[in-house]
């Protein structure tokens, strides 16, 4: 087992809401630095994969490993015991997340949204945090918006602030949960441009849930197609989009194209 090179691993993970299985014994491995896009119809469980990794959802069976350590469990004797809040806190520093609905802190300015979390959580000095926040805001093209409040921004600008805020914590693994789905069509590209920069920079492991098929094809190393809480098919983008092996993948892509989206 070369666990050390894996950023993320799911081993037989099941997630249930009552009798409804959202994930069914799902297994996947993501090497460090890999860019993964999760695609599939709504309700397929792709967002759940990210939410489990961000410790926003518990699991009912299986194990999740982040950088070779169990996420939802702790080693105990020969086996594993459920994770404590302390363990989850220690594990979360590896992971950052960008949400569909941004979830910026409305009572903080843009600058504070990006600068405060590292001060609060990592104990970074305010001078350093402010400087880094300015650098990150410049990176996402919002250097002039530091003094604004989130309510004064467009959706695309909000999402770029949210990306800067997540990057400020310097996570090794970044999760993007449909980052452009809540945006007006004309604002999608400005967010994708920022995501493209992060992907090209290379070091960060990325898991991206998206309906932007051509973008997924462009930036990801591997595509996972999920349906019904399981991975139906996975492979390099060109193969998945041009030559899908599974009937369900083919059907899904057909629907996407029929809805007027491009996949090339």
């Amino acid at each position: 087992m070369s666990d050390r090179q894996l950023a993320v691993e799911f081993r037989g993970v099941s997630k249930l809401y009552g009798a409804l299985a959202v994930l069914k014994e799902l297994s996947l491995s993501v090497p460090q630095g890999e860019k993964i896009a999760l695609i599939g119809p709504s309700g397929s469980g792709k967002t759940t994969v990210l939410r489990i990794l961000m410790t926003l959802e518990t699991i009912q069976a299986g194990t999740v490993w982040v950088k070779g350590e169990p996420l939802w469990h702790m080693p105990k004797g020969d086996g594993l015991a459920p994770a404590t809040e302390t363990h989850l806190h220690a594990m979360r520093r590896h992971i950052g997340m960008v949400f569909q609905h941004f979830n910026l802190f409305p009572h903080m300015t843009v600058q504070e949204n990006v600068a405060r979390p590292p001060q609060i959580v990592l104990g970074v000095t305010s001078g350093e945090a402010e400087q880094r926040a300015q650098d990150l805001l410049r990176l996402v093209g919002l250097a002039q918006k530091g003094a604004s409040y989130p309510a004064q921004l467009s959706g695309g600008q909000k999402q770029r602030v949210a990306i800067a805020r997540a990057l400020a914590m310097q996570p090794a693994i970044m999760l993007f949960d449909e980052p452009t789905s809540a945006l007006d069509p004309e604002l999608v590209e400005e967010v994708l441009a920022v995501l493209r920069d992060i992907a090209l920079e290379g070091k960060t492991t990325m898991l991206l849930v998206t309906h932007e098929m051509s973008f997924a094809r462009e930036i990801s190393d591997r595509i996972l197609f999920l349906d019904g809480g399981a991975i139906v098919e996975e492979g390099p983008p060109d193969q998945i989009f041009s030559d899908p092996k599974e009937e369900r993948t083919r059907l899904f892509l057909k629907k996407i194209i029929a809805a007027g989206h491009r996949i090339d």
Partner: peptide, 18 residues
């Protein structure tokens, strides 16, 4: 307070008190 606010602060690794 919307749940997304708590989720964002979990994602930023705030402790419960923070």
């Amino acid at each position: 307070v919307p749940r997304g606010q708590t989720e964002a602060s979990v994602a930023l690794n705030f402790t419960k008190l923070q």
